[in-house]
């Protein structure tokens, strides 16, 4: 067992840690999801996700041949992003508020899938997880070493929110800097090396901070 997931299988994780919220009814969730989704849909539009179109930015260079990782549910990023034009940050909502982008909680999936595509096998599987009150155990694809301090929120601030000429609905182009064209994938696979050279080249090109302790911890 890898220790990266040590705490997920530890004594606490296995006890009733995932009791559903007593206040939120299904209908409340659905209504909320519909409202927010509508907002994000309106903002989305089709752009090429190679990152070249992002103003005031030099996309980092580097390739990585990631392997295909089998996930508990073959989550189709392409349907969500490319077909339905859902903004990345609708699901990875912590990206602009925390160092981590976060995997969406199961409740968020169910917000839509209580009504949408309920007959599809993948959604049936999801519903099973929801009803068993056990979130799916996703396999980690993108990772940086534990001695690295990487923060999503500051990168989004630099390339999206504080970037003149850039709009939030095009955030997937910035995500693509490090995650590649996820909208063309089903489950994500790693296409960028995410190593120190990759980071350092980008910091050099985009005049990011160069102090060791900015990133090492």
């Amino acid at each position: 067992m890898s220790h990266g997931y040590l705490f997920l299988s530890g004594p606490v994780g296995s006890s009733g840690a995932v009791v559903p919220h007593h206040r939120s009814s299904r209908y409340f969730l659905m209504a909320l999801a519909a409202l927010v989704l509508g907002f994000f849909l309106a903002m989305s539009s089709a752009w090429a996700d190679d990152g070249a179109g992002v103003p005031n930015a030099v996309p980092p260079k580097g390739e990585h041949e990631g392997k295909n990782v089998e996930q508990p549910i073959e989550f189709p990023h392409n349907i969500h992003v490319d077909v339905n034009k859902i903004n990345c940050m609708y699901c990875h909502t912590y990206a602009r508020r925390s160092k981590v982008a976060g995997i969406p909680p199961t409740s968020k999936c169910m917000g839509c899938h209580l009504v949408i595509a309920t007959d599809k096998p993948r959604i049936k599987k999801l519903t099973e997880y929801w009803e068993k009150k056990e979130p799916p155990r996703w396999k980690k694809v993108h990772d940086v070493p534990d001695f690295v301090h990487f923060t999503h929120e500051k990168h989004l601030k630099r390339f999206v929110f504080d970037n003149e000429g850039m709009s939030v609905d095009r955030v997937s182009e910035v995500c693509a800097f490090c995650h590649g064209e996820v909208k063309k994938m089903t489950v994500a696979h790693k296409v960028k090396p995410l190593n120190m050279g990759f980071c350092a080249r980008c910091h050099e090109a985009n005049k990011g901070p160069f102090d060791c302790w900015k990133c090492h911890k």
């Binding site: 890898s2 220790h3 990266g4 997931y5 040590l6 705490f7 997920l8 994780g13 995932v18 009791v19 559903p20 919220h21 939120s24 990631g66 392997k67 990782v69 089998e70 912590y94 160092k99 981590v100 982008a101 976060g102 995997i103 969406p104 909680p105 199961t106 409740s107 929801w130 009150k133 056990e134 979130p135 799916p136 155990r137 996703w138 396999k139 980690k140 694809v141 993108h142 990772d143 940086v144 070493p145 534990d146 001695f147 690295v148 990487f150 696979h189 790693k190 995410l194 911890k217």
Partner: peptide, 28 residues
Amino acid sequence: VGVAVAGCDRPTTVTLEEGKEEVVAYLQ
């Protein structure tokens, strides 16, 4: 979330290999 438990990992057992570690979101 991937990096969240960083400090707790034992250095020799850390892996960056894709698909080796698990991430589990909150149910709610």
